[in-house]
Design a protein around this nucleic acid. Structure first.
Lengths: 163, 163
DNA sequence: CTGATATAGTGGCATATGCCAGTATAATTG
DNA sequence: CAATTATACTGGCATATGCCACTATATCAG
């Protein structure tokens, strides 16, 4: 019964009222909440392409980098190599992306868009721009640019090392 | 062969150089990259507790809210109800958290910390504070506070509706 | 050249998160 | 009160992401 409820709250009740919901101050929790919210909004906008916002990100990065190696792609996305691989699977299965061994170094696999993938990418990018525009409107260009700047710093190696 | 590589790059090559890596401007991608980076840093700091940063967040929110219903917990975390349920599973399995039907309304399940969970929570919170401190140091209190503020707005219903 | 070491990915397992269909329980309405 | 509708979850399936052990390939030391 109430035993479980008391367990954590009784002894620390005083502190709790003093610090008023700790979670409000957790940078990580706040960042994740924002990511879930924005992710869903972007997902909704790019949905007509049949892709998730994360997948549009993958296609865009592959496009931007040329035909990056798995490692390059992962690094540019601040993502685990293995996670990158797993994330690509649905796109490979749907023939939007393809892997090819680099003849120069047979350990390396290069990631590339198929013609289908390139077409899908263009369609998705048009939708993506709408999402970007909506955010600029909702937040204002200045705040948006500043926020991106701060987030870019958080994502950087420099911040990683400074932490 | 090179057919795939050309596919997407040939026609849009000119634009590409003009807009210089579109992904750099994607608010959603930047947010996720920052989340992955910070998540890993927080994970590392709270690791001695045996919990992931996301799990510390869950415990904290359960603690902060008292013994919230699943729906309340989900909403406060800007998370899907089902996702919340799934996220709780490892914590329930490890007996840190427990669910109980609300006698007032048998549809409702209240989430609560077990004594073990409350203890683990206190241990984790001490570590969490270190992570928070490290971020304040790395980013500066002002920037940190401002960033949290902007992220909180992104996570809000208000922003959701304005988008 | 050969063995030791470094580099690049793969696969399996686990958590994080979301959507949707289905179930249970409550509230509303005729 | 019975039928309808709304609410609160649960479970299954799918993607997102990370860690670790293992394999393949390249590099380097002797």
């Amino acid at each position: 019964m109430a035993k479980d409820i008391e367990a954590g709250t009784a002894s620390a009740a005083a502190e709790a009222s003093a610090k008023e919901e700790m979670l409000s101050f957790c940078n990580n929790a706040t960042l994740r909440k924002a990511a879930r919210r924005l992710g869903k909004l972007y997902d909704g906008v790019v949905e007509p392409s049949g892709l998730k916002a994360t997948q549009v990100t993958l296609l865009t990065q592959i496009y931007d980098l040329g035909s990056p190696t798995m490692a390059d792609l992962a690094k540019s996305l601040v993502m685990d190599l293995s996670a990158t691989r797993h994330s690509l699977e649905p796109l490979i299965r749907d023939r939007l992306v393809r892997l090819r061994v680099d003849p120069e170094d047979r350990r390396v696999k290069r990631v590339m868009l198929t013609p289908t993938g390139a077409a899908k990418f263009k369609q998705a990018i048009a939708l993506w721009r709408q999402a970007q525009d909506r955010l600029e409107h909702a937040l204002g260009s200045t705040r948006a640019a500043n926020l991106r700047s701060e987030l870019k710093f958080l994502a950087s190696e420099e911040f990683n090392d400074a932490f």
